[in-house]
Computed example of a mutant assay.
Amino acid sequence: MNRTMITATNTMSQIQHKMDIIGHNISNVQTNGFKRKESYFNDLLVQQFETMGRADRENGRLTANGVRQGTGAKISQAKILLTQGSLKTTDRDLDVALKKKDLFFKVLVQGEQEQSVNFTRDGAFYLSPDSQNPNNMMVVTGNGYPVLDEFDDPIVVNGNIKEIAFSENGQLRVTSHDGGAETFNLGIVSVKKPQFLEQIGGNLLGFPANMDELAVAEGNIVTALTGAARGEISLQQRSLEASNVDLSKEMTDLMNMQRHYQFQARSITLADQMQSLVNGIR
C-alpha cells in the first residue's frame, strides 16, 4: 500500500465519523431540547522533503521550497453547542422551557448497574403513580426518568391535584382540591464546560465514564443553582424548547462530507491503477 492509499484511508475513517455526527443531529431535529454537535478537522503528522539545495537562490519563487506530504486528517474536536432553540407554546401545564442556554434540569436515570444524575433541556414533564405510595404522583420525563429537586431527590406530590404552576425562578407549586399546597425547587444546573459532557441518548447529557482520567472536578463542569444562585434561573411554563439543529445546514454539511469521502475513495482507485501500470512495465 503506497502513501496515497494510507492518507486516503486515514481521512475516510474520520470523514465517516463526522457523517455519523451529522446523521445524529438530523435524526434529533424534532427532539425537544436537543443540542447539536459540531466537529472540526485537523491535519495529522506531516513530513517535509527539502528538495532545494540553496533556498537563498530562490528569490522570487512563488511556490514553497521543498515538498510537504501529509498523512491525512482527523477530527480534533467534537463539541456540543448550547445555542438556544426556539420556544414553542403548548398551553400544557406540565411543559416548561428554560430561557437561558446554559441551564439544564436534573433527572435520575437508571443505568445497567447503577443510577446516575443526568441533565436535560426537555421540559415535557408527566405525572406517574409512585410505586411506593399509589396515592402520590411522581414528576417524570417523557422517558419515565424521575425529575429531581435541588437536593437530588425525586419530586413526589399528593395525587389529589387541582393546579400545577411553575414560577420563573424554577419553583413548582402544586395545589390540591382540599386547599393544601406543596412547593418544590426544581433541580437545575448551569453547565459551564459542555465539552466535558457526553450525550447519553437523545436529549440527555451526563458525565463521561473516564472522569478520573480527565482530572476535572464535576463542580468545574456544572454548577448546581441553589440558594441565592437560583436567581439566575429563568423558565417559561406552557412552552417547550425545540432542537437547535438547522436541518438545511446539516444536509449541506452531509453532502459536502459525502463528496469528500468520494474524493478520497477515488484517490485509492487512482493509486491502485498507477501501481497496476508500474507493475505491468516490462
Rank of each mutant, 00 (worst) to 15 (best):
N2K: 11
T4V: 15
I6W: 05
N10E: 04
N10I: 02
T11Y: 00
I15A: 06
H17E: 15
K18I: 03
D20L: 03
I21Y: 04
I22V: 12
N25T: 14
V29I: 07
Q30L: 13
G33C: 01
F34S: 07
V46Q: 09
Q48G: 05
F49V: 09
F49D: 13
E50K: 12
D56E: 15
T63R: 15
A64S: 14
A64V: 15
G70I: 10
G70R: 05
T71K: 01
S76I: 10
S76L: 08
A78W: 08
K79T: 15
Q84H: 04
G85Q: 07
L87R: 05
D91A: 14
D91F: 13
R92L: 10
D93N: 08
D95I: 01
K101N: 12
D102V: 02
F105C: 11
V109M: 00
E114V: 04
Q115W: 00
F125Y: 10
F125G: 05
Y126I: 05
P129Y: 02
M138E: 15
L148R: 00
E150I: 11
E150A: 13
F151T: 14
I161D: 10
I161A: 05
V174Q: 08
S176Y: 14
H177N: 15
G179I: 00
T183F: 03
F184R: 14
G187S: 01
I188H: 02
K192F: 12
K192D: 15
K193E: 15
Q195W: 02
F196K: 15
F196Q: 15
L204W: 01
M211V: 05
A217Q: 11
V222E: 00
V222P: 01
T226Q: 08
G227Y: 06
A228P: 14
A229P: 01
A229W: 01
I233A: 03
S239Q: 15
L240Q: 07
Q258R: 12
R259G: 09
F263N: 10
S267Q: 13
A271K: 07
M274F: 13
S276K: 12
L277V: 12
G280M: 09
